[in-house]
Simulated scan of single mutants.
Amino acid sequence: MSTQTSSVRTSRPPFGLLLDVDGPIASPVSRTVAVKSIARDLAAMANRGVPVIFNTGRSDAFIAEQVVPPLRAAGLEEGTPVFTISEKGAVWAEITREGLGEIFVDDSLSLPQTLREDVRSLVTERFSDLMFFDETKRAMVSVEQNVDVENADYLAVQGEFDDAVAELLRRHGLAHIRIDPTIISTDIEHVRVGKDLGAERSLKLLGERSVTPQSWYTMGDSRTDYAMADWLHQQGHTVSHVDVRPADGVPETPYPVLVSETEAIHDDAGAEFLTRWASQLG
């Protein structure tokens, strides 16, 4: 346990953070935590007892490789309430000073191995110049834009790929699986997964530690990310949602939706809000 005296942790922190990763935290271009203040501010808030939970479609391997090292370098202390809820609620783990703790998988949300193999073959045979098969996913199946490919080129063929996957789902008779495209990827997933399931798992993990935030900030870059704020609001929690890519349109919600006052987007917008919240703790 760290002996730093600046850390004042409480079971009733003023707020908790439920954060999408791609966009608000990791750059959708480099796929890394590129804005240096992000890890600094997240670690500072976690060290004061603010729950920091990554509610993401990303795999636990991505979090371990791209998110955890900057947090450790920024001084994340032991015993902080930091978790990853990966693959939209299907996989979860505690984030510690040493890295990821035990990894848990809800096997009831895992997709058939035969479908995984068919999607991998589809990518290899027809789309490998634009996208790659994500081998790190444990429950869902995902493909992602190659880093050296222009996003416009990827998006131009994403629909063709998604249609081919839909045909695979029909062939396998998998009506309980859906296709969820993003600006840099396509997720093929069980219909029960989602940012709302991630939010539910997050509160269970905090409940096991008797940590109850007085309010919540959620953050994302797509309309599906609103589901975590929707769920928190429906459960009676005070929540505000940050949309770091409001160009898609901000829907009407029963809770506040915040956007960058400087018109920043993605991780630049995420960094603005994290710095503001960290400064509120004094």
Rank of each mutant, 00 (worst) to 15 (best):
V242R: 10
V35I: 15
T96D: 04
L197H: 00
Q214N: 11
A61R: 13
R223I: 10
K36Q: 14
V68R: 00
S210A: 15
E144D: 02
S121V: 09
V244P: 02
E150I: 09
E160F: 10
A264K: 14
G270N: 10
R120E: 14
V250R: 07
V193H: 07
R12Q: 15
V191S: 12
P69M: 01
T5G: 05
L71T: 06
L274Q: 01
L155V: 08
V105F: 02
M219G: 06
D41T: 06
N55T: 02
A229L: 06
S215N: 11
A199H: 00
Y154S: 07
T5I: 15
P112F: 00
E94W: 05
L197A: 02
L76I: 10
V29F: 04
T124P: 04
S222T: 14
H241V: 04
H176T: 13
V105W: 07
D163W: 05
R209Y: 03
A44I: 05
K204Y: 06
E160D: 14
E94G: 10
R40V: 14
G220T: 04
V242I: 15
I177Q: 12
V33H: 04
S110G: 06
A139E: 00
T10W: 04
L109H: 07
A156K: 13
M131F: 04
S279F: 09
D163R: 14
H241D: 03
L111M: 08
G57L: 06
E263S: 15
G270K: 11
S108W: 06
D243M: 12
Q280A: 15
H172F: 12
E87S: 09
K204L: 11
A156R: 14
E272K: 02
A269I: 09
A43V: 08
S215E: 13
L42S: 04
A74P: 06
K195Q: 05
E125M: 11
E78T: 04
Y255M: 11
D153H: 10
H241E: 08
T3I: 12
S37G: 09
S11N: 12
R276K: 15
A156N: 12
V143T: 13
K195L: 06
F83R: 01
P24C: 01
P254H: 05
L168V: 03
H190T: 00
I53W: 02
A39W: 02
E272P: 01
R116H: 13
A43D: 05
M228N: 08
L111K: 09
S6A: 07
A61G: 08
V149C: 10
R120A: 14
V29N: 02
L111E: 07
A64N: 07
D148S: 13
D187T: 00
L258W: 13
S59Q: 01
L197V: 06
N146H: 10
I183C: 07
A74T: 07
S128F: 00
E117F: 04
V8H: 11
I183G: 04
R48E: 03
H172E: 08
R126I: 07
T182L: 00
V257W: 12
M131Y: 08
I95Q: 09
E189K: 13
T182E: 00
D196T: 02
T182D: 01
S27A: 03
Q235N: 14
L42D: 02
V52P: 03
S215C: 12
A44M: 03
P69L: 01
M1H: 10
Q66I: 01
D106A: 04
A139L: 01
R170V: 06
R31G: 03
A61Q: 12
E160Y: 07
S86F: 05
D107Q: 15
G270T: 02
H241G: 08
L71A: 08
